[in-house]
Structure formats: structure tokens, C-alpha cells
Amino acid sequence: MSDRGFDIRRLPGAAPLAITCFVILYIPMAILVFNSFNAGKSIGDWEGLSLQWYAAALQNEAFLNAARTSLILATISALIATVIATLAALSTTRSKTFRGEASINMLLNQPLMVPEIVLAIALLIIVAQIKQATGYAGLGYLILAHSAFCIPFAYMPIRARLEGMDLTLETAAADLYASRFYTFRKVTLPLLAPAILAGFMLAFVISLDDVVISEFLKSPGQDTLPTYLLGELRRNLTSEIYAISSLLLLISVLIVAGSWLLTRRKT
């Protein structure tokens, strides 16, 4: 070790700036949560602690409908995206490059490269035509659109895991004349499971987070939590918005904590 007592890790000023950064990140969210417990009717006046806005939200049918839509939408879209992304990852990894691999890879990342607002208006144009032609106005459009832009997110961790996976076990299984499907089910899948779960969670959060595409595509009565919140923000800026926002914040914390525990147990 250096006798001049130099530690490059100690960059002067980094720690205070980092702490400032965390304070900046957390203060607004803390105030938001704090406001949600305000007994006062409007956000201007503080009238003591109360859970009334949470109670109001839980009795608000529009909010409950939006929560239900969001949950159904995020679950189905994330499931579809994860299954499809797993198949795609099995296709593009662990082999010599094959014809068309580059185009598949580009295609899989395409939704990441197009701005959300552009994708939203593009989908608006095409879905309006399909709705008019078929008369079907169900949740299907949102589910498929969400699945499409969630695929790249589910794909990333699964692909990374597959690339880092040791092939010896599978080769051994194949040597023992196990069928390809049997090998996949008994050897590959269990090894891949954590990555698939991570991909699913990523896709779920991405779907839950989406405002723009849902806002443009929704049919009447298909508000998701974020689009409901966006509409509510225009109508009334009451403490109920803070309660709903805080609930969404809680969901994020739970998901992050959940994935954290999952990955930590593994290592």
C-alpha cells in the first residue's frame, strides 16, 4: 500500500454530492407520502394525521376499476412477453451465429429505440382502423401492445443468463440420450428460472409504469392506474391523488425489495 496515504476511492466532494443526490431524490417522495396522510380536504392546509384518503380511494369505484385493469393488463402482458422472450432468447444464444440472427436481434430491440410517444400515435392510427373494422373494443389491443414493448425488457435478463450458463450439464443430458424437450424441462429451465422471474418482474413494472401508450389506446372504461391518475390530476388536485400515488410507490418498493431478496438469496 502507498505510504503517502492516498486512496483513489476517496474522491474529494463525492460523498457530500452523493448524499445531496439522495436527499433530492427522496424528499419529494417523502412529502408526497406525508401529504397523503393529511386530514385536510385540499393539499394547501394541514389538519392532522388521517387515513381518510386511503379509505376514500378504496371506496372509489373508478380507482378500483383502474387498479383491476392495470393488474390484469400488467399480469397478462408480462406473462406473454416473458414466454415469448424466453423462446426468443433460446433462439439467439448458445450457438454459432445463424442466418438472420442479427435481424432478429435488431427486431427484438426495436421497441426500445422508438420514442414512446411515437409508438403511441402509430398504434392509435392503426388500432382506430381495426376497431372500426371489427367492432371489437376490448382489452386485447392494450394487452398485445404492452406485450410488444415489454418483450425487450423480459429478453435482457433471460438472454444474459443463458449466455453465462454452463453447457456441460445439458451436453451430459444429451449424451444420456435424453430428448431435447426433456433436457430443456429438467436441466435448462430450472437453471433459467431466476432469470425468467426477473424478466417477468421487469416486464410487469414496465407495463404498470406505462402512461402514454395506454392513454392513446384505451377504450371507454379502460383506464389504467396511471391514466386514471393523469385524468384525475386535471380534474381535482385532492389528497386522494397523493394516497393513490403513495400506493403506487409502495408497489414499486415491494417489487424492488422482492427482486432484491430473490437475487441475494442466490448469491
Binding site: L79, G138, I143
Partner: peptide, 28 residues
């Protein structure tokens, strides 16, 4: 997972339960 997905899709496409529905588009 697939079965579950199919079931969920089926649920989400079911019509609402009330006798009828009405969709109103009005100013905020």
C-alpha cells in the same frame, strides 16, 4: 402459465355484468 394466461384473457373479454352499458363522452 399459458393456461393461466388464457383464463385471464377470457376473463378480460367478458362483457360487463350490468344489464346494459352506456359510454358517455363529455367535457371534464
Amino acid at each position: 402459465a399459458l393456461t393461466f394466461t388464457t383464463a385471464l384473457v377470457a376473463i378480460s373479454t367478458l362483457p360487463a355484468l350490468a344489464e346494459g352499458t352506456l359510454n358517455i363522452y363529455n367535457f371534464g
